[in-house]
Computed example of a mutant assay.
Amino acid sequence: MKRTPEYVLIINSIVVLSLFSSCNNKVEKNEITVEVTNSLDFERKEIVAVGYNKLSLLLKNNAQEHIKVKKQDTEEYLLTQWIDNNQDGIMDDLLFQAETPANTSVKYVIVIDSINHVKKTKAVTFSRLVPERTDDYTWENDKVAFRTYGPEAQRRIEENEYGGTLSSGIDLWLKRVDYSIIDKWYAKNVETEGYYHIDHGEGYDPYHVGKSRGDGGIGIWENDSLYVSKNFIAYRAIATGPLRTVFELDYAPWSNYNVKETKRISLDLGSNFSKFDIKLVSEKEVPNYTIGITKHQGKGTVKMKNQEGLFRHWEPIEDAFVGEGVLIDTALVKESINYDSKTSDQSQVLIVTRPKGNSLSYYAGFAWTKSGQVSNVEDWDNMLKKQIQIINNPLKVQLK
């Protein structure tokens, strides 16, 4: 058959278009491999983050909700969470929970899938303001729960009204289930006041904070006294589960130094430790910022390891034991004091830190023997030792 010039031109055009399309298909990725490396000698299960900008090729023509993550060579998708850390309306990171054996790298795959869904789980992170109980701010995950107190609770104390609390300390809720209990316990407490002070099988709140620092509150240690803020005056919810909850609390200027304080608190799924990132601005130079752990009636035992940045309290509460702890960069530790006082709520472990610019970061957490996470003080010490290693040796995340 004789081929006309027009025929040859059409065939050549098709070949060129085919090659161009083929090249485009090779350039446009439909999956990304993520290698997560654990350099420590024990297994870890932690939340890792992949930056939004590193997923731009996948997101080019796809919705965020169609991004899925799975372990390489498996089919089941993992829980994920997008998070906007700076609240500018643009997502910053994609979170997922990585499991890595000791001294091992594990590969995960980020793919596009608009059809299949991620299996739901009852274990999540959660936080919120609780106006039905004055104005607590409460947060939890599958291991632990915490709370602190707002301006309405302060007002009631200052105006001699019932139901107030004056404290910027960090309260502990002892839970022994992996699902969220905040909404349930508060709802039950509205029906029957004092409900969450009784263990109905899920845990309860026997922990007393008062004017102490609870587990991880701060102050300024000066002239054998600890000067502290009152209740928070404003809050901002940044993120709520399923893998990480984040929020901020503002405090009115406090102490003779007129310290303006903003706490950013975050809690990851699977962790016993809240992270505190605190911004502090003062009118004049502050001698220190001191982190406290309350000692109830002096019944507990204390361990202070300045060179490790590890501070522990272990105490009996009713018919069980609770371990509290603070973990911090050793470069920030000036001294630590096992302080005893005849004044109520003032016997505390005090971690005196050197001010470093306008910020202070540390972790505070706990474990309760009835949760099944620890059985004795040795277990708690081991958990703290592992956590300080985790903080100092974060999982390495590389995109392939």
Results as ranks from 00 to 15, higher is better:
Ala331Arg: 08
Ile328Glu: 00
Pro287Met: 03
Gly325Thr: 08
Val326Arg: 10
Ile328Pro: 00
Lys305Leu: 15
Thr330Val: 15
His313Ala: 09
Ile337Ala: 08
Ile337His: 05
Asn338Trp: 06
Gly323His: 00
Trp314Pro: 03
Pro316Ser: 08
Ile317Phe: 06
Lys334Ser: 15
Asp319Gly: 03
Glu308Pro: 07
Gln297Trp: 13
Thr294Cys: 14
Gly323Ala: 02
Glu315Arg: 05
His296Met: 11
Val333Pro: 05
Asn288Ala: 11
Asn338Glu: 13
Thr301Glu: 07
Thr301Lys: 12
Gln307Trp: 12
Thr330Gln: 07
Glu335Asp: 13
Pro287Glu: 09
His313Cys: 06
Pro316Tyr: 00
Lys295Glu: 09
Glu308Val: 07
Gly300Gln: 01
Asn306Phe: 05
Glu318Tyr: 07
Glu318Arg: 09
Trp314Arg: 08
Met304Gly: 14
Lys299Asp: 11
Leu310Phe: 09
Ile337Cys: 06
Trp314Gly: 04
Ala331Gln: 13
Ala320Met: 03
Ile293Gln: 05
Thr330Tyr: 05
Val326Ala: 08
Val302Ser: 09
Leu332Asp: 14
Asp329Lys: 14
Ile328Asp: 00
Ile317Trp: 03
Val326Glu: 10
His313Ile: 10
Pro287Ser: 04
Gln307Arg: 12
Ile317Pro: 01
Ser336Tyr: 07
Met304Arg: 13
Glu324Ser: 14
Ile328Trp: 01
Phe321Thr: 14
Lys299Ile: 12
Gly298Met: 05
Glu315Asn: 03
Ser336Asp: 02
His296Tyr: 13
Thr301Gly: 08
Leu327Tyr: 02
Ile291Cys: 03
Trp314Gln: 06
Val326Asp: 10
Leu327Arg: 10
Lys305Trp: 11
Ala320Leu: 04
Met304Ile: 14
Asn288Asp: 05
Trp314Ile: 08
Gln297Cys: 08
Glu324Tyr: 09
Gly292Pro: 09
Gly325Ser: 15
Glu318Asn: 09
Trp314Lys: 07
